[in-house]
Nucleic acid binder design. Structure first.
Length: 447
RNA sequence: GUGGGUGUAGCUCAGCUGGUAGAGCGCCGCCUUGUGGUGGCGGAUGUCGCGGGUUCAAAACCCGUCACUCACCCCA
């Protein structure tokens, strides 16, 4: 047996990102804003377990199962074989659909909920693509029928949240699955999924390559041309309907999709001009979507992909007798932050606003009393780790970005005083009444 | 899963055709005998990813392996 000389070297695990304290402050700010906004719009919070029976996760599409992380006891023996095999959820919509079925008798419909949790996908990581990441999800489900106006509501909620965050300009692209589906069927292409998948690459590989791939998949040059013509349609208003009609393809599903998308875009144009764009190439990977689909890109970072996606699903939650159609959209918070974190920072790496200094270790009780008085009034603070030269204690605060150092009264100073170490200003202060400027109370996100 | 790139100090990296490790930043101490930031002086830190091979000699060359990373696939 080989002798272990020391602990194994610690290493990051690819695809499982972790933030430093100052970055986590930024993330928490985003979480606070998103949560407040969701609640402002009346969404109730739920949390679901991390695992679902693998069967439930895989019943939705062929592509998903290879991404699922299985969960089992390390020492699981034969007595475990009766339990369902478990997997970590890869999104929040599937667990939510299960939760609705399980609690349908206790929920009131239409039910609107938000859910902020990690999800797991066993993919090869890349920039902005992780194996564990945070999603912030809102969904609305109803019994039997779901009013179409909800499909316009969700992007407006997202826009409200994003407008309060330092992420720059963004655009929500909306499409309706029925449009490409009806269109492809209308021109005689029956493998809708494959065609969608190819057309989805348009931005990345260009029209010529898309055409080539389509023809390799069995389309005629004319069919490929039509697909491209449809995919290239994009409009901030209902004008896309005429442009589609001008292509001269007729199909019942297409007509339905056009009407539905037009309704969503109309509301968007009224309530939030410039936010939504009808973009007929948007496809969305997950195949449980049946109508409206959303993607969101940061303007100027289009090739980064979508940072917030979702859509309408009519058949995801069904117990055989009753169906609960829903519509949802999810912020890929980890992906969003990965892109913009380099341009952001926290004003300090700790919540502490004040460091209470100690002239001598015997003064610690006095320092703790000062700290308690500050905390009673909501001022985050901590007492110096050791009594040291004041210069060292100031440096301790400075390295963490703590803006104030408190000096308790001493033999040569009758009063407590507090120093703003950024300006150097020091004033006499009383722990029962002094307060920092509001802007300094909590760490801020700065751009 | 497939293909490319990279692994040297806490961080960013240098290290030529082999001669057993360096810089900047950061960190610590002192100048500064209880109020920091600038400046000066001094200091600590590496299984050179891991295992094997070639060689008198390997961070360097060869083989393997692992990790990270980029692209494909797919997606937030």
């Amino acid at each position: 047996m080989k002798q272990q000389t020391g602990p194994a070297k610690v290493r990051p695990i690819s695809g499982f990102p972790e933030w430093l304290p100052s970055e986590r402050i930024v993330e928490q700010h985003f979480l606070d804003v998103i949560r407040e906004t969701f609640e402002l719009h009346g969404y109730a919070s739920i949390r679901t377990r991390a695992v679902e029976p693998i069967e439930r996760l895989t019943s939705l599409g062929e592509d998903t199962d290879k991404e699922i992380y299985a969960v089992s006891r390390l020492a699981g023996g034969s007595d475990d074989s009766r339990e369902p095999k478990l997997g970590l959820h890869f999104d929040l919509t599937v667990p939510f659909a299960r939760y609705v079925l399980e609690n349908s008798g206790k929920l009131t419909f239409p039910f609107r909920r938000y859910q902020i949790q990690p999800v797991w996908r066993g993919e090869r990581p890349q920039e902005g693509r992780y194996r564990e990441f945070l999603q912030c999800d809102i969904d609305i489900v109803d019994v039997g029928e779901l009013a179409p106006h909800y499909e316009a509501e969700l992007p407006l909620v997202i826009a409200d949240a994003f407008s309060k965050l330092p992420i720059g300009p963004f655009r929500i692209q909306v499409n309706n699955r029925k449009i490409p589906e009806g269109f492809y069927l209308g021109i005689g292409l029956t493998d809708v999924t494959s065609v969608l998948r190819i057309v989805d690459k348009l931005d990345k590989i260009g029209p010529a390559n898309v055409s080539e791939l389509l023809q390799a998949a069995g389309a005629t040059p004319e069919q490929a041309q039509k697909c491209l013509a449809l995919a290239e349609i994009s409009a901030p208003d209902e004008s896309f309907v005429e442009r589609v009609n001008a292509l001269g393809v007729e199909h019942e599903t297409l007509t339905e999709g056009l009407a539905e998308l037009a309704a969503v875009i109309r509301v968007g144009a009224e309530q939030a001009p410039g936010l939504m764009v009808a973009d007929l190439k948007v496809a969305r990977g997950l195949d449980y979507y049946t109508g409206t689909v959303y993607e969101t890109q940061l303007i100027g970072h289009e090739s980064y992909g979508s940072i917030c996606s979702g859509g309408r699903y009519d058949a995801l939650a069904s117990d055989g007798r009753t169906t609960y159609p829903g519509v949802g959209i999810s912020i890929g918070l980890s992906r969003l932050l990965a892109k913009i974190m380099p341009s952001l920072s926290a004003s300090r790496s700790t919540p502490s606003c004040v460091l209470v200094s100690l002239a001598d270790e015997t003064d610690r009780p006095q320092g703790m009393t000062v700290a308690a008085a500050l905390r009673r009034r909501g001022i985050p603070c901590e007492v110096a780790p050791v009594a040291a030269k004041f210069g060292k204690q100031i440096k301790f605060a400075e390295r963490r970005g703590i803006p104030f150092v408190w000096f308790p009264a001493s033999a040569d100073q009758n009063n407590d005083s507090v120093k703003d170490i950024r300006s150097g200003d020091q004033t006499v202060a009383d722990a029962s009444s002094w307060a920092p400027p509001a802007a300094d109370l909590r760490p801020r996100v700065v751009t």
